[in-house]
Design a protein around this nucleic acid. Structure first.
Length: 891
DNA sequence: GCGGACTGCTTACCT
DNA sequence: ACAGGTAAGCAGTCCGCG
C-alpha cells in the first residue's frame, strides 16, 4: 500500500533515493540508460514490476503490456505469448457466416467458432459465434469494410429465410483490443506482475494480502457474494505504489505573430527552448542559439542547467533522448501542443519516423517507450476537479491549478517569446515544468498515485484513465466483470429496447425523469443546527435495492410485485445485478474502512495519507456511479435504473422527514440526501439514526453541526458557521466566480465578521458592522473609488465560440464580439472579463474601458441583490443601510 | 410605439 | 460526453393600450 512495502522484495535502493543523498548514478546504470535498446523486451525473468500500460503492436500483431520495474526505474515490454486474438460475437451461425464471401475472403478474418455465453438480458445461456480475426482493425477499425459492418450488411443476401436487419446482432466489436486482452486474461492494470520463464504472472505482496484479509474480517454483515467483491476491490486498493521516475516537459516556440499560438500540425517555426524537470533531480533547460538574442541577467534557481545548442536538430535529439529514457513524461497540454509540435517539427527537420519517440494519435500523443500523462486532460476532468480537489482550482490553466494546489504560479512575461533574452526565456520555460512536475509530486505524489489507483479500479492503462471521463472508467470495470463471468456484454440499443425509458416527469423542461427533493428552507438565523445525511446515498440505494440493468424490469413473473416506490418499475428478487455488487462493495469499503481510517490518528501519517487518497478516488467514482445510467453516452445506459435510484432517494429523505416530525424535531432545510435539524437532542439524533438503519437499511450520520446557520427563502442558498469558526457558504451570489472582485471582497468581509458571532447576543454588534461594510462599499462605488477596473469586471466563461450564439446575445458574448473585432481570438471555454458602462451596448471588455464610463448604478443594484440574500435573514434592509429614505426608494 | 408580463437562454451553483 | 434541481440576470416576445 505504501512505497515501503515494496521492500518485501526490492532489496536494492531506488536510484531516486541515491539522488536524494546527492550520490551520482553509478556508471553502469547511467550507461545502461543512455544505451537505447528498442523495443525494451522484458527478459525471460523480470523482477516485480507494475503494469502501467497496454497497447497493440501492429507490426507483430500482439498485445503489448508495458511494465515498470521500479528498481531500475525502467519500462519493459511484455508481448502476449498465449496466442490471444481479437474477436467479436454474433448470432449468426458459423455455417451462415462462411457463406458470406466478404467475411471469408477478408484478409483479417481468421476463423469462427461457437461459444456459450450467459445473456444477461434474457437471463439464460445462449450459443453465439465468436468471429476471430488476425488483426483488431479487421473487427472494427475506423476504415470501412470491417467485419463488424460487413456481417449485418451481407447476411440478408445469404439468408435462406427472409430476416429483418435488426435480428442480426454483433456484440463486443467496439471494445479496444488491448482492453479485450486485459479482460480475457483477467489482468489488472496498475498491479504488480513478474515475468517468469517468459510468462506474465501476478506477484503477491504479502503485507498487502494481510491487510486485505484484515479488511474482509471487518465486514461481518456482508453476504459471501458481497465479500468476494470487497476482497477484490480491497486487493486493488491495498497493493503498494512505486516511485515514478518521471520528467516534466515544456517547450517554447518562436512565433512571428506574438498573439497567435503556432499551429502544432504545421510546426512552421523554431523550437527555441525546452525545459526538462526530472524526478531524479535533473533540471535542464535547452536553448537554441539565435542571432541577436541577448544573455539576460536573470539568475535561475539553483541546480538548473542551461544548455545552448547551435542547431535545432541537436536540441531536439537531446529532448528525444529524454523521451526514450524516462518511463513517465508529464506535460500540461502535451497532447494538443508540446508533443504534437515536437513530432511534426522533427518530421519537418527530416528525422526518420523511428528516431521520433512520439506515437501520434488523432487526439492524443503517446510515447513509444514510456507513459505520457497530460495533466491538462486530467485536471480538466470535472469529477477530478470537483470531487478529488474540491473545486480548489477554477480555470484549468497551469497558472490557476498551480496557484490553487501548490501555490506556484507562472512567471509573468510582457514581451513576445521572440524578444526575450535567453535567461528570461529559460526562467519562464523552467517555471512551467517546475509547476507541471510539482503538480504530480505534491502530497507525496498524490496525483501519480491517484492515476494508478484509478487505473486499477477501471482496468485501464494509466494514459487512458488520466484522459477519459468517469463513464469510461465505470464502463470498463463493468466490461471486465462481464467477461470474467462469461457474460455477453449487451449492446446499448438492446438494453434500451428491453428496459425502455422512464415513467416520471422531470421538473426541469427537457430532462428525462424526476430527480431529487429540495426542502423549502425556514428563513432566518438558527442556532445549533445539526446536518444529518446518508453517506453515498445513491450508491447505497443501488446496493440495497439491487439496481442494475439486469435486475430492473427483469423477465421473471415472480419479481413483478417487487415494485420500487414512486415508480412503475419492479426489481429482481432472485439474482444480484453486477452494478449493485460492484458499486455497493466500493461504497461499503469507502464508508466503513477507508474514510474512517483516513482520519484515524492511531495510524501513521503515511498510511493515513494513502487512505485519504483511496477514499478520495472512491468518492470520485461513487459520485458518478448513478448518473452514468441516465447518460445516453454510457454503454450500459439504462434510464429506469437512474430513475429508480432518484425515486428511492426521494422516498428515503421523505421517510426521514416524516420520522423527524414524529420525534418532534424541526427540519430547517434539506437537499437530496440531507436534513438540517434545529437544535436536536443527542437522544433524538440517536433515535433517528437507529430508525433509519432498521427501516431503510441505510446509515444516517451527523455530517456537521453549525453553531448557527442563516437561511433566506431560497433553496441551495445558505451560510453556516461551524463550531471551529469556519464558514460554509453555499450557492450565494457572493461566492460565485463571475462576480466583480470589488463586490466579492465586501462579501468576504461580511463572512469574516459573521464567523466571529458566537451567541445570539453577539449579533447586535455584528449587524452594525455588516451595515458598515455594505455602506462603505456603496460609498466607494458612488465616489468611483476603486483601485482598478479589473475590480469591477464580471468574469464569465464562454460556453461556445462567440459566433455560435444565435438565440440570444448575452452580455459576455457581446463583450467577446467587441474583442473579436480587435483581432483577439476567442473560443469556447475562454474567460471574458467585462464591465458595465452607461453607453450602448452597456458592456465593454475591461481592457477597453475607462473609469468614467462605468455605470455605477448597475453595480449598486448588483451589490444590493448580492447582499439581500443574507440581509433579509438578519432583519436588515439594503436601502435603509445606504441611507435612502422611504420616499427616495419609491422614486 | 412603449412598457410590463412572460418565456427562454445562459451561467454558475448544490447534491 | 455522469444526473436533475435552483437562482439570477438578461434577451427577446407578446399583448394591451380607446
Amino acid at each position: 500500500m505504501v512505497q515501503t512495502r515494496l521492500d518485501d522484495y526490492s532489496k536494492t535502493k531506488h536510484p531516486e533515493e541515491k539522488e536524494a543523498e546527492a550520490l551520482p548514478f553509478t556508471e553502469t546504470i547511467e550507461k545502461e540508460r543512455t544505451k537505447r535498446v528498442f523495443p525494451p523486451v522484458a527478459p525471460e525473468n523480470l523482477p516485480p514490476s507494475y503494469f502501467v500500460s497496454a497497447t497493440y503492436d501492429g507490426k507483430i500483431r500482439k498485445a503489448l503490456i508495458k511494465l515498470y520495474e521500479p528498481t531500475s526505474a525502467r519500462i519493459y515490454f511484455w508481448y502476449d505469448n498465449t496466442g490471444h486474438k481479437p474477436y467479436c460475437l454474433t448470432n449468426l451461425s458459423p455455417y451462415e457466416l462462411e457463406k458470406i464471401d466478404r467475411v471469408v475472403r477478408h484478409p483479417g478474418f481468421d476463423h469462427a467458432e461457437i461459444v456459450e455465453k450467459f445473456d444477461p438480458l434474457l437471463d439464460k445461456n445462449v450459443k453465439v459465434t465468436k468471429v476471430v480475426a488476425k488483426d483488431p482493425l479487421a473487427i472494427g477499425g475506423r476504415a470501412r469494410g470491417c467485419l463488424r459492418d460487413i456481417i449485418p450488411e451481407e447476411f440478408p443476401k445469404v439468408s435462406e429465410v427472409p430476416v429483418s436487419r435488426d435480428e442480426i446482432k454483433v456484440w463486443e466489436a467496439k471494445i479496444k483490443y488491448y482492453q479485450s486482452y486485459i479482460y480475457d486474461r483477467n489482468l489488472w492494470p496498475g498491479m504488480v506482475y513478474e515475468v517468469k520463464n517468459g510468462s506474465l504472472v501476478p506477484k503477491k505482496v504479502e503485507q498487502a494480502e494481510r491487510m486485505v484479509k484484515q479488511i474482509c474480517e471487518t465486514f461481518k454483515k456482508a453476504t459471501a457474494e458481497e465479500l468476494q467483491y470487497i476482497e477484490h476491490w480491497a486487493r486493488l486498493l491495498e497493493y503498494p505504489a512505486p516511485k515514478f521516475r518521471r520528467v516534466a516537459l515544456d517547450i517554447e516556440v518562436y512565433s512571428p505573430i506574438p498573439t497567435r499560438m503556432p499551429d502544432p500540425r504545421e510546426a512552421a517555426y523554431q523550437v527555441v527552448c525546452v525545459s526538462l524537470y526530472g524526478s531524479d533531480g535533473k533540471k535542464r533547460v535547452l536553448l537554441l542559439k539565435r542571432p541577436g538574442v541577448r544573455e539576460g541577467s536573470e539568475r535561475l534557481p539553483a541546480g538548473v542547467n542551461l544548455e545552448y545548442y547551435d542547431s535545432e536538430e541537436k536540441l531536439l535529439r537531446n529532448v528525444f533522448d529524454a523521451l526514450w529514457d524516462y518511463p513517465f513524461v508529464i506535460t500540461f497540454n502535451g497532447d494538443d501542443f508540446d508533443l504534437r509540435y515536437l513530432f511534426h517539427r522533427a518530421q519537418n527537420l527530416g528525422f526518420r519516423r523511428d528516431e521520433i519517440p512520439i506515437e501520434m494519435g488523432r487526439r492524443v500523443c503517446l510515447l513509444k517507450y514510456g507513459v505520457h500523462i497530460d495533466l491538462y486532460k486530467f485536471f480538466f476532468n470535472r469529477s477530478i476537479q470537483i470531487y478529488a480537489f474540491n473545486n480548489r482550482y477554477r480555470d484549468v490553466t497551469l497558472n490557476d491549478v498551480g496557484r490553487a494546489l501548490i501555490e506556484l504560479e507562472k512567471i509573468p512575461i510582457e514581451k513576445p517569446i521572440g524578444e526575450l533574452t535567453y535567461t528570461e526565456l529559460a526562467e519562464y520555460c523552467f517555471r512551467d515544468t517546475e509547476i507541471t512536475y510539482k503538480l504530480t509530486s505534491f502530497e507525496d505524489d498524490l496525483v501519480m498515485k491517484l492515476i494508478l489507483i484509478l487505473a486499477r479500479i477501471s482496468s485501464m492503462p494509466m494514459e487512458d484513465v488520466s484522459r477519459q471521463g468517469v463513464s469510461r472508467w465505470i464502463r470498463n470495470f463493468m466490461h471486465h466483470e462481464h467477461r470474467r463471468r462469461n457474460m455477453l456484454i449487451p449492446n446499448a440499443e438492446d438494453i434500451l429496447a428491453k428496459k425502455g425509458k422512464t415513467s416520471t416527469k422531470a421538473i426541469i423542461k427537457g430532462k428525462k425523469y424526476k430527480g431529487a427533493i429540495v426542502v423549502e428552507p425556514v428563513p432566518g438565523i438558527h442556532f445549533n443546527v445539526a446536518v444529518m445525511d446518508f453517506p453515498s446515498l445513491y450508491p447505497s440505494i443501488i446496493k440495497v435495492w439491487n439496481l442494475g440493468y439486469q435486475s430492473i424490469l427483469c423477465p421473471h413473473p415472480e419479481c413483478r410485485d417487487n415494485i420500487i416506490p414512486g415508480t412503475t418499475h419492479w426489481v429482481c428478487k432472485k439474482k444480484r445485478a453486477l452494478e449493485s455488487l460492484l458499486i455497493g462493495s466500493l461504497r461499503d469499503l469507502r464508508v466503513q474502512w477507508y474514510k474512517p481510517k483516513s482520519k484515524d490518528k492511531s495510524l501513521s501519517a503515511e498510511i493515513r495519507n494513502w487512505y485519504r487518497l483511496i477514499q478520495g478516488a472512491l468518492k470520485v467514482i461513487l459520485n458518478a456511479s448513478y448518473g452514468v445510467f441516465g447518460a445516453e453516452t454510457f454503454d450500459l445506459y439504462c434510464p429506469p435504473v437512474a430513475e429508480a435510484t432518484a425515486a428511492l432517494g426521494r422516498h428515503s429523505i421523505t421517510q426521514i422527514i416524516n420520522k423527524t416530525k414524529e420525534l418532534g424535531i424541526q427540519v430547517l432545510y434539506g437537499d437530496t440526501d440531507s436534513v438540517f435539524l434545529k437544535n436536536p437532542t443527542k437522544e433524538q439524533i440517536r433515535e433517528l439514526a437507529r430508525w433509519t438503519e432498521k427501516e431503510l437499511k441505510m446509515g444516517l450520520d451527523v455530517d456537521k453541526v453549525y453553531r448557527y446557520a442563516v437561511f433566506s427563502s431560497r433553496k441551495k442558498n445558505y451560510l453556516g458557521v461551524l463550531e471551529d469558526g469556519s464558514v460554509d457558504v453555499k450557492g450565494l451570489t457572493g461566492k460565485k466566480r463571475h462576480i466583480p472582485p470589488f463586490i466579492k471582497k465586501a462579501f468576504d468581509k461580511m463572512k469574516e465578521r459573521l464567523a466571529m458571532v458566537k451567541t445570539p447576543a453577539d449579533f447586535e454588534e455584528a449587524k452594525k458592522d455588516v451595515c458598515n461594510i455594505v455602506r462603505d462599499c456603496y460609498m466607494r462605488l458612488k465616489r468611483r473609488q476603486w483601485e482598478s477596473l479589473e475590480e469591477l469586471a464580471f468574469n464569465v466563461v464562454l460556453g461556445e465560440a462567440p459566433e455560435h450564439y444565435v438565440k440570444t446575445t448575452p452580455q459576455h458574448v457581446r463583450a467577446a464580439r467587441i474583442l473579436k473585432e480587435k483581432g483577439i481570438e476567442l473560443k469556447a471555454g475562454d474567460l471574458i472579463s467585462f464591465v458595465k458602462v452607461t453607453k450602448e451596448p452597456h458592456v465593454k471588455p475591461v481592457e477597453l474601458a475607462t473609469k468614467n464610463e462605468i455605470d455605477v448604478d448597475k453595480y449598486v443594484a448588483y451589490l444590493h441583490s448580492t447582499f439581500d440574500q443574507v440581509l433579509d435573514a438578519l432583519g436588515l434592509d439594503f436601502d435603509e443601510i445606504i441611507g435612502l429614505t422611504k420616499l427616495e426608494r419609491f422614486m
